[in-house]
């Protein structure tokens, strides 16, 4: 009903860190002046490897509706192999954005009227010094670049805070590398 809420859906696999990624963006958004922030993971029996999604809603004013996102403005996909299992564009608003971690080029995909951005997050994260498969910090670099919702600086700060005990610099570098190399397509 409210029109002022930006809705972002995060697709990943259980254990891949989609929740942490969304949480970092939530923190950065809150610091950018979005007072309404609600992040809702898949409710229930999450199992490692199984497809999961997380809802993130942000708005300038407090958000009261906790129900999952039905018509997202943006979807973030942490793993391109999910495209074969899940309709990540389900409910995506017209002209909505897709941010995709994939080693393939942007031309390999056709999402019709939706706007696609791609980055080989898996590779950049390795390059940044993270263990194989750690993609959640990288993908939010791509998200920040593609959407412009949060600044590079706030993101960096939020990552360092979240990963203060676990390779904060490497995680921040993964985000920065991805930020710089994300390819943004047209609608």
């Amino acid at each position: 009903m409210r029109q002022d809420i930006i809705e972002i859906r995060w697709h990943g696999r259980g254990g891949q860190g989609a929740i942490t990624a969304a949480k970092i963006v939530a923190n950065a958004a809150f610091k950018s002046g979005y007072n309404g922030v609600v992040m809702a993971p898949t409710f229930g029996t999450e199992r490692r490897g199984a497809p999961v999604y997380t809802s993130l809603k942000i708005a300038r004013e407090k958000i009261y509706d906790l129900s999952p996102i039905a018509t997202p403005d943006m979807v973030v996909v942490l793993d391109h192999t999910l495209l074969e299992e899940v309709d990540v564009t389900h409910g995506l608003k017209e002209g909505g954005q897709i941010i995709l971690n994939t080693p393939k080029s942007i031309d390999s995909y056709d999402f019709g009227a939706h706007r696609l951005s791609v980055a080989d997050v898996t590779a950049y994260a390795l390059e940044a010094g993270l263990a194989p498969g750690i993609v959640n910090t990288g993908v939010i670099g791509a998200f920040a670049k593609a959407t412009g919702l949060v600044s590079r600086e706030l993101l960096r700060e939020a990552i360092r805070h979240e990963f203060s005990a676990m390779k904060p610099e490497e995680n921040a570098r993964a985000a920065a590398l991805t930020y710089d190399r994300t390819v943004i397509g047209g609608a």
Partner: peptide, 10 residues
């Protein structure tokens, strides 16, 4: 449960 326990908000 979940609606508040597992959602994140400031």
């Amino acid at each position: 449960g979940y609606l508040l326990s597992h959602t994140y908000m400031p």
